[in-house]
Design a protein around this nucleic acid. Structure first.
Lengths: 290, 290
DNA sequence: CATGATGTCTGACTTTAGTCAGATATATTG
DNA sequence: CAATATATCTGACTAAAGTCAGACATCATG
């Protein structure tokens, strides 16, 4: 009734019936669910037939027939892969794009309707982010990105906002030594964003310097993704990138108001060192040889 | 990407594939999903065939066949309803109870596994409660219960804990005028619990007095269910109950540290009056004629 | 270039879910 | 009691999803 397992199962029941409703709404366009799923997979940019089959978990015979039915309806055209004539590439036709847009509109309206049902939108969204992050934790992809791209800027914005909340004196990025974007791009360094599906949920920067070491900056994990050991994965990926770039010594600074970060560094081979810069915010300094 | 609708849709995708996995895990017991659902509905105490059919949204022909297949497998036996020989009552046999227990174990293990994936259990559970409450908002049932029952005690415990957090001076129930349970039972008064599936998510008490009015006490809505206008529904139900009991004048006290409550009373026809008791906690007093 | 692996397609099949039109027995109501 | 409504069941049907074996073209590799 009130024990944790019952609460999870209540959630499962609620969500199962909601998902059922979501599926049947797709049937409103007079197309079996299987065909609709293939159409939408193609619309979302998956073009390789084998990839779609894999993503949707379909038998190759079934996949072939579904694709054929979409072709017959004039929604999809297929060509052969240019490097491998066995593989097929599927693309939407003009009519297919129209149809896909209709499905998208349906999905968006549904999502919008769901949000409209609750006055505490932000709480609801945060809850959904958290659950989606846990469910898709196996599929979080770490991607190297330009620190100026939209995903990176989103992460950094959230990071600064959080420092502002957690530091007693607040946080003003212009007073901190804001790393130059080009120092966090290969070959000087790199910037890694953790993507869960389409949502950026964490980041870390590796900033090259001219002083014989590189610095780790901007390690951030979205509140919804904490507890999934994502910080450790981001740090591991950064160390791998550093080794690739021929960097052998890493440094970082942090603040004791962020105890979980200090804890992470201490348990992953970082050694506390004395202050090596004059940034006003940090009060803890670490070093690691990779 | 980061807009609210995309976040909802990311959640939908995550949950859809998880639900798919959940469904197929049910298939692990070599029984089609339809039959498994009927078996589980019976196991969870639904015995009236029409009720099961309605709950699962099945056609009567299909329901009949599924029931027959479970009977043939020796898992279910049916009898006719004693007051109405057209209706059938389904019960699990010993083998059926064993099979049901296996499904339950599967579901519990699954829920437990999900919880184990995240270190912030409470945050995860709160998020699930919130989403489940929004999804099942249409199906919240207001039920009159004994104020001493488990569901009621859970709500009251949460209510006191919340007052403790929100009142500057804290809250000690023994210093407040704790209503006698028998004053919140028919015919003196009543106690209503809002149930969402198996989870109590709100309550309100109607306490009879000997002074020509009845008092509304213990109005509480779970944090996960706020924003769904449940407070208003609970108040409406209490007024209905009062009318049924022949009560024409209602009073209540509250505290200005609970502004959403005061707001609710002011917009639903309550009139502020002067202090009518010596309880140390309230500082606002209302009255309504029904 | 022979051999085996891979990606796709086709035909033949099964299972599951669901629909619809009666048939049957029982209950309700004027 | 007659007429009507209700609950269940049965038979006949369809749609959708999925399975499996094998055909065929193409690719990779020794």
């Amino acid at each position: 009734m009130l024990d944790p397992i019952s609460r999870v199962r209540r959630f499962n029941r609620a969500v199962t019936s909601a998902v059922g409703a979501l599926d049947t709404s797709f049937l409103g366009r007079g197309r079996p669910l299987g065909a609709a799923r293939v159409l939408n997979a193609i619309g979302h940019g998956r073009s390789d037939v084998a990839e779609i089959r894999d993503y949707l978990g379909l038998d190759s015979g079934l996949m072939s027939r579904l694709l054929r039915s979409l072709e017959d309806a004039g929604l999809v055209e297929t060509t052969t892969h240019q490097d491998d004539a066995r593989r097929r590439i599927a693309k939407l036709t003009r009519a297919g794009r129209r149809e896909f847009a209709a499905y998208e509109a349906l999905s968006n309206a549904q999502a919008d309707g769901f949000l409209a049902q609750h006055s505490q939108r932000e709480a609801l969204l945060a809850a959904m982010d958290l659950i989606a992050s846990v469910l898709t934790r196996e599929r979080v992809a770490l991607e190297e990105m330009d620190p100026r791209c939209e995903e990176a800027r989103h992460c950094l914005g959230e990071y600064y906002a959080e420092l502002g909340r957690r530091f007693k004196q607040g946080f003003d990025v212009s007073r901190s030594r804001d790393p130059d974007a080009k120092d966090m791009r290969r070959p000087r360094g790199t910037f890694i964003v953790a993507m869960s599906d389409t949502l950026p949920i964490g980041c870390v920067g590796l900033k090259g310097t001219d002083h014989g070491y590189a610095e780790i900056k901007r390690l951030w994990v979205a509140p919804a993704a904490r507890g999934l050991r994502l910080g450790r994965r981001l740090m591991d990926a950064t160390e791998d990138a550093a080794r690739e770039l021929g960097i052998t010594l890493l440094r970082l600074d942090t603040n004791s108001a962020l105890p979980e970060a200090g804890q992470l560094y201490r348990t992953t081979g970082w050694r506390e060192i004395s202050r090596y810069n004059d940034d006003p915010y940090p009060d803890l300094f670490f070093e690691k040889r990779v």
